[in-house]
Design a protein around this nucleic acid. Structure first.
Length: 188
DNA sequence: TGCATGGCGCCGG
DNA sequence: ACCGGCGCCATGC
């Protein structure tokens, strides 16, 4: 997939966004999207670590979402459900990085190039983003990932091979990596 | 502006 | 193999 970035979107001038949630196979999942253009702003897997509201505050997302569901949101839920069920390895969802610095956006883009079922180290991601040596900051940037799963920050691990941190909890990170390992060879 | 803060990397014991 | 300590660098206050 080819992510299209809206580099100059001002978060203060955002249109009224749609927000919804559903209970996926593993966790409750929140998402915020916009219909035209068809972009997705936020995907958040709930966890014992952090609530959705805390996540919104921590990332300074300042969203103005209206609870809403339509055909588009049903499609989003289906896509995510397919991924979590091992039936999909490439998202058709187009993220819009309306928050984040230039550095963070580069890191998120670099992370999106990691194929399903594969991992990369924080150092490798920093290098791919064009900031060799900023691997420590790359970790922080991934902690600010607004679009979980679509930007597969769970595929970024430590150089040592250890799993590293994850905003949704390290157990969830391990679960997602195991899921991808299980299905990577089964899918075409 | 300077300084503390992080989803890290590396080396030595 | 497992730590602790130090170095690393973009951000935010």
């Amino acid at each position: 997939m080819n992510p299209v970035l809206k580099e100059n979107v001002d978060s203060k001038k955002l249109p009224v966004l749609n927000k919804a949630s559903f209970v996926s196979s593993i966790e409750k999942l929140y998402y915020i999207w916009f219909k035209k253009p068809q972009v997705i702003y936020i995907v958040f897997l709930s966890s014992s670590v952090e609530s959705f509201d805390d996540y919104i505050d921590r990332l300074r997302l300042g969203y103005s979402g209206l609870a809403f569901k339509d055909m588009r949101s049903v499609e989003i839920e289906c896509v995510i459900a397919d991924y979590l069920g091992g039936r999909l390895k490439s998202f058709s969802l187009e993220p819009c990085f309306f928050t984040g610095t230039a550095f963070e956006k580069k890191v998120w883009q670099a992370t999106m190039t990691i194929p399903y079922g594969r991992v990369a180290s924080y150092r490798e991601i920093a290098e791919k983003a064009g900031f060799p040596g900023a691997w420590r900051a790359a970790g922080t940037a991934l902690n600010h990932n607004p679009v979980m799963l679509v930007v597969p920050c769970h595929r970024v691990i430590k150089s040592s091979g250890r799993i590293g941190f994850f905003g949704g909890g390290e157990d969830l990170k391990e679960y997602l990596l195991d899921l991808e390992q299980k299905y990577v060879l089964c899918l075409k």
